[in-house]
């Protein structure tokens, strides 16, 4: 525990506000994520979790406030710029290249990371490291044998795995996962947690999750988002015992 306290903050979210034409979704979100931490964001439906993710990952600009990544203010930067700074996110609804096979889905990100983006002369597979890296990522998420399968023909569980593989393809230091186990069966969820735990080793993870089992088995730190701001942040056991959380979140769930 002590070692964790001394780690540096990799991400600081400072007083983020967001409103959509008058509708206040986020009303001052503050929290920080330490290097190599597994940080879960939980909260009832409509608390603004996905909006917060969209702001951190550059899809939306915050109305006010700042996001600081490794000491640099990155709020309002475009998604591709953030990806190149090693922040990468996944999507709640699988968002991959459906017409491409699994291998090419992942290679799209890997070759971008290797600078093979707009090259007029080289083919996408012309750098051996790119292909090797792609194979490596596929093996990591358990899709090594599915390389040739078109993404749209994958089973649901495999699609979710591919979603994570594409997220990993750019070698992110900070990974943002938006409900990676949504819609999975119990068994699939357990497998998925194992896999996520494995692939995020030595990286920083921020995860939005509904499934409390996932949250408590995976996270070092939990932040509870309620009514557009962070109600409390702390270690899982603290959150479990916190009366405010019980009132706000668990109470609502029961009701």
């Amino acid at each position: 525990m002590k070692a964790m306290q001394e780690r540096k903050d990799i991400l600081q979210v400072r007083d983020i506000h967001k409103d959509f034409s008058g509708l206040k979704v986020l009303t001052g979100v503050d929290f920080e994520v330490k290097e190599n931490e597994k940080h879960a964001i939980i909260g009832p439906n409509g608390a603004g979790k996905t909006t917060l993710f969209n702001i951190i990952s550059g899809k939306y600009k915050p109305s006010s406030g700042s996001i600081i990544f490794k000491g640099e203010d990155i709020s309002g930067r475009s998604p591709h710029a953030l990806t190149r700074m090693k922040i990468c996110r996944s999507f709640q609804m699988t968002n991959v290249f459906k017409e491409l096979n699994v291998f090419e889905n992942v290679r799209a990100g890997v070759r971008c990371d290797h600078g093979l983006r707009y090259n007029f002369l080289k083919r996408p597979g012309s750098i051996p490291e790119v292909n090797e890296k792609t194979e490596e990522i596929l093996a990591l998420v358990g899709l090594a044998d599915a390389g040739e399968t078109p993404a749209r023909e994958l089973s649901y569980g495999q699609q979710r795995a591919l979603e994570i593989a594409v997220t990993l393809s750019t070698e992110p230091e900070l990974i943002l996962l938006d409900e990676p186990t949504a819609g999975m069966t119990r068994e699939e969820t357990i497998e998925a947690i194992k896999m996520i735990d494995k692939v995020t080793a030595n990286r920083t993870l921020v995860i939005i999750e509904h499934d409390m089992d996932v949250v408590f088995s995976l996270a070092d730190t939990i932040s509870v988002l309620h009514n557009g701001s962070i109600l409390v942040s702390g270690r899982p056991e603290e959150i479990r015992e916190d009366q405010r959380v019980k009132d706000a979140y668990l109470g609502e769930e029961a009701g």
């Binding site: 998604p79 591709h80 990806t83 990468c88 999507f91 290249f97 799209a108």
Partner: peptide, 9 residues
Amino acid sequence: ERMKFVGYN
């Protein structure tokens, strides 16, 4: 959208 999020402008 996904292209943006894997780093392409």
